[in-house]
């Protein structure tokens, strides 16, 4: 019961933040709304017993990536969005398509929810850091190393792309 209430509260905060992201005209406001979304998502992760994930969500996503976004917004001094004529395809085909998809998925989920069960926190050692670490460094070692190379490449790319032409 408590879980459900908590879930609903944080879920609503998430959706509100997301909608605000769409509605705001200045990108900085959108960025701040996104931070709100991420924070509430972290809380929902906690509800699901994913401690490690919640932590890195706050540290990496909200703390590093969103900060990067805010830096760039402030650097480029992007102003409010102007109204320009956009793509008609997006409006005519894209929006209805996505609405339909969302509705379909939603309907499926609601009707099929009987087969699925519910989620609880079974044991307190479920999302523990050392269990994740064990998985990461044993079964998923290769992907881990590759992602470190990926980050290296990303750093190099960002540095090259960001350099001024001289």
């Amino acid at each position: 019961m408590v879980h459900q209430v908590l879930f609903i509260v944080f879920g609503l905060i998430c959706v509100a933040g997301a909608i605000n992201l769409l509605l705001q005209r200045h990108p900085i406001n959108s960025a701040l709304s996104l931070v709100v979304v991420m924070a509430s998502l972290a809380l929902i992760y906690l509800l699901l017993g994913a401690e490690f994930v919640a932590a890195i969500q706050v540290i990496v996503y909200a703390g590093a990536i969103m900060v990067l976004f805010v830096f760039v917004i402030m650097l480029l001094n992007a102003g409010e969005e102007e109204r320009t004529r956009g793509s008609r395809v997006a409006l005519i085909l894209g929006v209805p398509g996505v609405i339909i998809l969302a509705a379909t998925v939603g309907w499926l989920l609601v009707t099929g929810s009987g087969q699925l069960g519910s989620v609880t926190i079974a044991s307190s050692d479920f999302g523990e850091t050392h269990a994740i670490a064990r998985l990461l460094f044993k079964d998923f070692l290769l992907p881990f190393e590759i992602t470190s190379v990926l980050i290296l490449i990303a750093i190099m790319g960002a540095v090259v792309l960001g350099k001024r032409e001289s």
Partner: peptide, 10 residues
Amino acid sequence: MVPLSWYLIL
């Protein structure tokens, strides 16, 4: 206690 489908809908 919270149905899985709620999370998925969100």
